[in-house]
């Protein structure tokens, strides 16, 4: 199935320092790390190429200072990239006029911020309604919409609180409600859960997956937490020092790291957490007794208990729900203890 590309960038650079354009031009548009160092420039994003497909969760992942926020701000044109090309729904984002850009942001994009970025002088309800307010939607309509969103993120009853009266997790729920209120197609989340405690973070991740299963947005999600990335991502882009090292599914990142950096990074990730049943199953479904059916996108870690307790193998289903292979408890245990991993 060929999915359409929602957002795409090619050869995007963001350079900080004195006269970044002429710096890029001098080095033929591709300065090396040494060039950056010798001329005291900062390459926050270097030659980024990304395609985000409609309806997928695309995670950008990297350590602090690797340029994730900068990249996502280039993609949403909150900052102007120094070089490169960005297309959104087939339109060149960089040649849009200010008015067009504002229109796109109002109607098509939503964004969640690391430190919530709630307006302190507005209540929860007013914050959630803010994007509609600046579009000039009537008070009644926007509050009705905002109430729906607040309910969606589970904050009903707190509409008239001020942000400072809420816990971090609750504040980020408001941030999420605000980013969704205008029904955007493309949803940016810049480390939305990094400022939260680990327990809350997990709860919010589940919440996020639940929302996405209802809304089917196209999502660009930033995180520095690899566990979070593999839990949420359809595909992950790993960034280091402003460059994208590899873009792949969580499974492929772990199994086939493209660079030593990615390998180093993924070495300690348990295989079971990323390996999906559809990639460890034996193809074909011979006749016989089965304990039941399991979806092929589940990971080994998700299912190992079930597999172990059943005694019998399971049938593995593809996306359309038809059986395509079988998997038994031994396959899962092999992965768990690393027996088949070469």
């Amino acid at each position: 199935m060929e999915r359409s590309v929602k957002l795409e960038c090619r050869g995007v650079w963001k350079v900080y320092g004195a006269q970044p354009e002429s710096f890029l031009a001098k080095h033929n548009g591709a300065p090396t790390t040494a060039d950056f160092e010798s001329e005291r420039m900062i390459g926050a994003v270097r030659d980024a190429n990304v395609q985000v497909y409609e309806g997928e969760i695309f995670v950008i992942m990297g350590l602090s200072g690797s340029g994730k926020s900068t990249l996502v701000r280039c993609l949403s044109r909150l900052i102007e990239s120094t070089a490169g090309e960005i297309n959104f729904e087939g339109r060149n984002l960089l040649t849009m006029t200010d008015a067009e850009l504002i229109e796109v942001r109002r109607k098509k994009m939503g964004m969640v911020f690391q430190h919530f970025a709630l307006l302190p002088h507005l209540t929860v309800l007013q914050n959630a309604a803010f994007p509609l307010e600046i579009q000039g939607v009537s008070l009644k309509d926007r509050e009705a919409r905002a109430r729906q969103m607040i309910e969606l993120v589970g904050l009903q009853g707190r509409e008239d609180y001020y942000p400072r009266q809420l816990s971090g997790g609750q504040q980020q729920r408001v941030g999420i409600a605000r980013s969704l209120v205008a029904e955007p197609d493309l949803w940016f989340l810049d480390e939305p859960f990094s400022a939260l405690d680990p327990l809350i973070r997990r709860e919010m991740q589940d919440e996020f997956l639940r929302l996405q299963s209802m809304l089917h947005k196209t999502i660009v999600f930033i995180t520095h937490d690899f566990d979070e990335a593999i839990r949420l991502a359809d595909r992950i882009a790993v960034m280091k020092d402003g460059s994208i090292e590899q873009i792949d599914t969580p499974e492929n990142l772990v199994m086939n790291p493209a660079t030593p950096y990615v390998e180093e990074f993924t070495r300690h990730i348990p295989r079971a957490k990323v390996m999906k049943l559809q990639s460890i199953m034996s193809k074909g479904v011979p006749d016989g007794d089965y304990a039941g059916d399991l979806a092929g996108h589940l990971t080994v870690a998700d299912t190992v208990l079930q597999l172990d307790q059943a005694g019998l193998p399971f049938r593995v289903l593809d996306q359309d729900g038809s059986p395509v292979g079988t998997v038994g408890s031994k396959d899962a245990v092999d992965i768990m203890i690393g027996r088949t991993v070469g």
Binding site: R73, S76, L78, I102, E103, R105, R106, K107, M109, G110, M111, F113, Q114, H115, A117, L118, L119, F130, P131, E133, I134, Q135, R178, S179, A182, F188
Partner: peptide, 23 residues
């Protein structure tokens, strides 16, 4: 002002005027 708040305004589609008056 926290730059993230300004970004939030921009991401919501504020014009420069709205950014000034409302945020």
């Amino acid at each position: 002002i926290d730059p993230e708040l300004i970004d939030a305004g921009k991401a919501a589609g504020c014009t420069d005027r709205q950014l000034l008056v409302r945020i």
